[in-house]
Amino acid sequence: MTAAIEVRPADVYADVAAVVGPKRPDASVCFCLSYRLRSSAENRSLVGPARGDRVRELCAEDPPPGVVAYDGDEPVGWAAIHPRADTSFATNRRIPHVDDLDVWSLWCVRVRPGHRKQGISHHLIAGAVAFARDHGAPMVEAYPVDNHGEKVDLTMAYVGTRAAFERAGFEKAADTDSVLNGFPRVLMRLDLR
Rank of each mutant, 00 (worst) to 15 (best):
P63H: 03
Y13I: 10
A137Q: 09
I95W: 12
E166P: 05
F170Y: 05
A60K: 08
I81A: 02
A18V: 12
A69Y: 06
S105W: 07
E74G: 04
E150N: 11
S34D: 10
L192K: 01
L154Q: 14
T2K: 15
V111L: 07
T155Q: 14
D99W: 06
C59R: 01
H115S: 08
Y70C: 06
E42P: 01
E74F: 02
R8S: 12
R38P: 11
R44E: 08
V7T: 07
H135W: 01
L37D: 00
D71F: 04
R38Q: 07
M188I: 05
A157R: 13
W104G: 07
N147P: 03
A10S: 13
V109S: 13
H148M: 11
Y35D: 09
D146A: 13
A132I: 05
T87P: 08
G182K: 06
L33K: 00
H82V: 07
A157I: 15
S88P: 01
A164N: 03
V179P: 04
H123S: 12
I125R: 12
W78E: 07
V16F: 05
R54H: 00
R24G: 05
N181S: 15
G72M: 01
E171S: 15
D15W: 12
G66N: 04
A80E: 07
T87V: 04
E42Y: 00
A128W: 05
F131H: 13
G169Q: 02
P49F: 00
Q118K: 14
R185A: 14
A14F: 02
D177R: 11
R189A: 12
L46S: 01
P63E: 00
G77E: 07
H123F: 09
E150C: 09
D73K: 05
T87G: 06
M156Q: 14
R84S: 13
E171A: 14
S40P: 15
G21N: 03
G66L: 03
R54F: 00
E171W: 10
